[in-house]
Computed example of a mutant assay.
Amino acid sequence: MYLNPAAAQACDSACANYIDKLIAHQRLARDLADVQGFGSLPSGVALAERFSKKAVDADGTNNLVDVLQSHIDVVMAMQAVFRKFFTDTENTDEQNASGISAQGPR
Rank of each mutant, 00 (worst) to 15 (best):
Y2W: 08
Y2F: 10
L3P: 01
P5R: 06
P5F: 06
A6W: 05
A6S: 11
A6L: 09
A7S: 09
A7I: 14
A8L: 03
Q9E: 14
A10S: 09
C11Y: 11
C11T: 06
C11G: 05
S13R: 13
S13C: 05
A14I: 02
C15W: 06
A16H: 03
Y18D: 00
Y18N: 02
Y18F: 08
I19H: 02
D20P: 00
D20Y: 03
D20S: 13
K21T: 02
I23W: 01
H25D: 10
H25W: 13
H25Y: 13
Q26V: 02
Q26F: 03
R27Y: 08
R27V: 10
L28G: 02
L28V: 03
A29D: 03
A29F: 01
R30S: 02
R30A: 01
D31Q: 12
D31R: 09
A33V: 00
D34Y: 05
D34A: 10
V35K: 05
V35L: 02
V35S: 00
V35T: 03
G37D: 06
G37T: 04
G37N: 04
G37P: 08
G39L: 11
G39Q: 13
S40C: 07
S40I: 12
L41D: 15
G44K: 09
G44H: 10
A46Q: 15
L47S: 13
A48K: 12
A48D: 08
R50L: 12
R50S: 15
F51K: 07
S52G: 10
S52W: 00
K54R: 12
A55Y: 02
V56A: 10
V56Y: 05
D59I: 01
D59F: 01
G60M: 04
G60Q: 07
T61V: 09
T61R: 10
N62G: 07
N62F: 09
N63H: 12
L64Q: 03
V65K: 02
Q69H: 06
Q69W: 03
H71I: 00
D73Q: 08
V74P: 00
V75S: 04
V75D: 05
V75M: 05
V75W: 02
V75Q: 02
A77V: 03
M78T: 07
A80N: 14
A80K: 15
V81G: 13
V81I: 15
F82M: 14
R83C: 03
F86V: 06
T87W: 02
D88L: 05
D88P: 00
T92R: 12
T92G: 03
D93M: 12
E94F: 08
Q95W: 07
Q95P: 00
N96Q: 12
N96V: 10
S98Q: 13
S98D: 11
I100W: 11
I100Q: 13
S101H: 09
S101T: 12
A102Q: 08
Q103G: 14
Q103P: 01
G104Y: 05
G104E: 07
G104A: 06
P105D: 14
P105T: 15
P105S: 14
P105I: 15
